[in-house]
């Protein structure tokens, strides 16, 4: 993979032989006619999926913003999308937990209630039955 780093921007007229790993991978993994083998190996599986994601997907946000989205139906991407949703939800939950913890801290008598915390604590109080 390091050889790629050697490709410099000014190489405008470059032409590569079909030996670039990413190009080979995107063809041997994704393409070709699909006939079921006896040994069931899901090429979208686990770690392999991670490799695919590293190779292909990291520019996805940039690309999507730019309107390049023809691969959206890709199952690998869908699962990525699912994971993104989870990650976001996770972050939100963590934030709420953090907020809750702050409130609890604010309510403790030992804590000198700073204004911000007190107001949060007050809001918490209101919601209590």
């Amino acid at each position: 993979m390091t050889e790629r780093d050697l490709v410099h921007p000014p190489s405008v007229a470059t032409e590569r032989h079909p030996s670039d790993l990413a190009e080979i991978l995107e063809r041997v993994l994704d393409k070709g006619i699909v006939i079921a083998g006896d040994i069931k190996i899901d090429l979208l599986d686990i770690e392999l999926l991670t490799i695919r994601l590293r190779l292909f997907i990291s520019s996805v946000d940039t690309a999507r913003r730019a309107g390049i989205d023809w691969w959206e139906t890709d199952p690998a991407l869908s699962s990525r999308a699912a994971r993104d949703t989870l990650a976001q939800e996770n972050a939100e939950l963590r934030e709420r937990l953090h907020a809750l913890e702050s409130r609890i801290g604010a309510e403790e008598p030992s804590t000198d209630g700073t204004e911000g915390l007190t107001s949060v604590g007050a809001a918490e109080e209101e919601r209590r039955p």
Partner: peptide
Amino acid sequence: RRLRPHGVEVTGRHRTHVLN
């Protein structure tokens, strides 16, 4: 057929893949 554009690990930071 259009393939997915490559990510920065493949292209390097100096360029963005806009057509594959």
